[in-house]
């Protein structure tokens, strides 16, 4: 993961980080989506682990999780998804993103071991703030898994060092106080916030929540080391499904086309900034 960000920095452009829900709308389709992401221009993949009670997510990601669970997705199968992807792609960093309970019930040590075997590079666990680092963060770091922390507008300068202390890989700046799928805030405010975080860390700072279009990606990418897109991808999947909720011929190509557009946005961002 560090290498990926270093390479992109050398290239002079921000990373495109794409989130999708593992197992949505079914295991095989989500594997096909995952496999399509790198060639469509995604630099880092966030693989969503569905949870019955996603407290920090808006309706789009809630529904995606429900579709995945209904299709039989489990944490074990999400790790299997990563393993199958890794068989063909050794380079694209994979970050698992979700909530703690399924990991806790799976067993923390066994989870870390199996995640490493599956080729996972990092973890984002929404409901584990630094106060809870003993649970998963420290054991994961000790075994060489990155632990990526969310920083938010409520994370003030006094608190930032605590949030950054055991963070590795990158810092995920949540662009607003709210849930996933909300509207994008003013990019100039986001830029200021990214600078504030960068004053405290040498880690790359990626920005997410509210980025839906290539224009958003370009605007946010002008000041950040990476742009995270989630809800837009999940919505793209949802809109391609048939009446029974099954995938159609449009599902994977739809996501590919969307990501291609976002990738172009990200690639144009530093040029836009220079103008």
């Amino acid at each position: 993961m560090d290498k990926r960000f270093a390479d992109l920095a050398a290239e002079g452009r921000p990373a495109l980080v794409t989130y999708f829900m593992g197992g949505d709308p079914d295991f095989e389709t989500s594997l096909a989506i995952m496999k399509s992401l790198p060639s469509a221009g995604s630099d880092v993949i966030e693989l969503g682990m569905p949870f019955s009670d996603p407290m920090a997510d808006g309706p789009a990601i809630q529904l995606a999780g429900q579709r995945a669970l209904k299709a039989g997705q489990t944490l074990e199968k999400t790790l299997e998804l990563a393993r199958r992807f890794r068989a063909d792609d050794k380079d694209t960093p994979i970050v698992l993103m979700g909530y703690y309970n399924p990991i806790y019930v799976y067993g923390v040590d066994r989870f870390i071991e199996n995640a490493l075997e599956a080729g996972i590079d990092g973890l984002i666990v929404v409901d584990l703030p630094p106060e809870m680092d003993d649970e998963l963060c420290l054991p994961a770091l000790a075994k060489g898994l990155n632990f990526i922390r969310l920083a938010t507008p409520t994370t003030d300068d006094k608190r930032l060092p605590k949030v950054l202390e055991n963070t590795s890989g990158f810092v995920y700046y949540v662009s607003m106080n709210g849930i996933t799928g909300s509207a994008l805030p003013d990019p100039s405010l986001v830029g200021g916030a990214v600078q504030r975080i960068k004053a405290h860390t040498r880690l790359p700072v990626c920005v997410g929540f509210g980025v839906k279009t290539p224009e958003h990606a370009r605007a946010i990418g002008a000041s950040a080391d990476g742009v995270v897109v989630g809800t837009a991808i999940v919505n793209q999947v949802a809109s391609s499904l048939n009446e029974e909720g099954h995938s159609t011929g449009a599902t994977v190509p739809g996501v590919e086309a969307l990501v291609r557009g976002l990738a172009a946005g990200v690639r144009g961002s530093r040029l836009a900034a220079a103008e």
Binding site: M55, A56, Y100, V126, D127, L128, P129, E131, M132, R149, L150, A151, T152, P153, T154, T155, D156, R159, V163, V174, N177, G178
Partner: peptide
């Protein structure tokens, strides 16, 4: 205290 960072402060 298993909450999202936004709520922690």
């Amino acid at each position: 205290r298993f909450v999202a960072e936004t709520l922690m402060p």
